[in-house]
Every structure is written in C-alpha cells, then in structure tokens.
Design a protein around this nucleic acid. Sequence first.
DNA 1: ATAAACTGTGGGGTGCACCACAGAGTCAAT
DNA 2: ATTGACTCTGTGGTGCACCCCACAGTTTAT
Lengths: 113, 113
Amino acid sequence: MYKISEFVNITGLSKETLRYYAEVKLLEPAYIDPLNNYRYYDDGSYFLAILLVKLRSFGFTIQEMISVMDDKSFANLEKILQQKRSTILLQIDNLTAKLGELDEFLESGREND
Amino acid sequence: MYKISEFVNITGLSKETLRYYAEVKLLEPAYIDPLNNYRYYDDGSYFLAILLVKLRSFGFTIQEMISVMDDKSFANLEKILQQKRSTILLQIDNLTAKLGELDEFLESGREND
DNA sequence: ATAAACTGTGGGGTGCACCACAGAGTCAAT
DNA sequence: ATTGACTCTGTGGTGCACCCCACAGTTTAT
C-alpha cells in the first residue's frame, strides 16, 4: 500500500490529478481509511496508473481511458489504440498540409515585397 | 462600407468572433454609427479579416495576430510565420514520435496476448 | 509534547477562443 | 404603420483536464 505522496512520486501523476481520476471513477484508491479518509493505492493501482500515463501521452481523453478501464479484459484497448493511431496520422496530414499552405503564403509574401 | 451581416458573409467570421476581435483590439470596425452603435467595416477591414482567417488557420493565437496587426508595416509577420513554421515542424516530429511509441505499444501488446 | 509535514474537503479558477441568449432598440420593405 | 429582419449590450456558458487555495484535521519525527 502506498500513501498518496508515495504514489505521486512513483507514478508522476499529481495529487490533484489522482483526486480527479478518482472523482471521475477512472482510477480509484485501493483503500480509503474510514477513520481519516486517507487514500491508499496498491500495486494494482500502480499498474493501471502507469498504463494511464502512457495512454494520456498518446492523447487519450479521459472518456477514452474510462472506456478502456471499464472493460477489464482490455478488449477495447487495441480498438481505441487503432483509432488513436488514425487520429495521429490525420493530425500529421493536416499539419503537413498546413505547412504547405504556410510555405506558399511565405512565397507569395516574398513576391509582393 | 459593409454592415455586419454582409461582413460576416464575405469573411466567414461570425458576428460573435468579430465582436470579440473588436474587444481585444485585433480588428475594429472602420466606423461605428454614434446614433445606434451599429458597427461597419470597409475594404481595409476586409483585407485584414482575410489575412486573419489565413493566420488563424495556421494556428496563430490571438496574441500573435495582435502583434502582427500592431505593426502596420507587417515586419513581424514573416518572423512569426517562420516561428509558426518551426512550431508546426515540431508538432509533426512529436506526433511522429508518438506514433512510433504507439506502434511499439501495440506490438508489445500483441506479444503479451 | 511539540513542531513539521502530510492529507482531506470544498469550492473557485485557469486558458483559449469564442458561442448563446434574452431583452431592447432599430432598420428596411411594403 | 406595421411587420420582419437586423443589431446592440450584458452576461453567462462551453470543454477539457486539471490547478490552487484556505482551513482543518492527522500523522510522523524529535
């Protein structure tokens, strides 16, 4: 069992983020001491937290992470990962297109100077 | 002189956006009728509005657009365009890296199944 | 026993770039 | 003159994913 400050250190998630994740039922503490409401996390929490950090870095929204977590067999995971992959490819395409337009605009600016 | 509804049509900016742009002094009406506060735009406004639409599509923030507009010689424009170009390249790099990580993650997932 | 460090709760705030809406005044066309 | 369309102002809300703060209770170390 990890107390919150330890869990913050090993996961890299802030205490506010952990609190928020508990609130939206994305990642709830493994145990809450009924005497003082202190929240404790365990190794299972740790595994999930590391996964969440990874998914977050892939641009998963909270909702997407919840839908991954809700399905404990993680069958949704690959599907959403594929979706996210397409999204990233699309974003790259859009940025590349934008870059082209921007270069074009820079060119036209030079002509007019 | 264009009345607001005409200006909305020819620029593609919404009336709320125009109002907002006026509020932050990004693009102010060419004339405001003191009798009824109706806002009117002219061809100069039109030129600027078209530029703003373009810059916005390049991902310029309001502040960046303001700094372009504040310098009427547009000397800042090319500089910021170049900055934005770098930003876009960086974003593409980051997304590409993320794609790599995601594919790696997908791979490792398959191994563990 | 005392002080420092930790943790909880509730609620507000953040940033960005707008959008929405109510109510009142105004204009254009018939 | 009337109707419908237009425009104004002020204010609140949006979405996302948190962050921050005060205050109070609790734990840990000395």
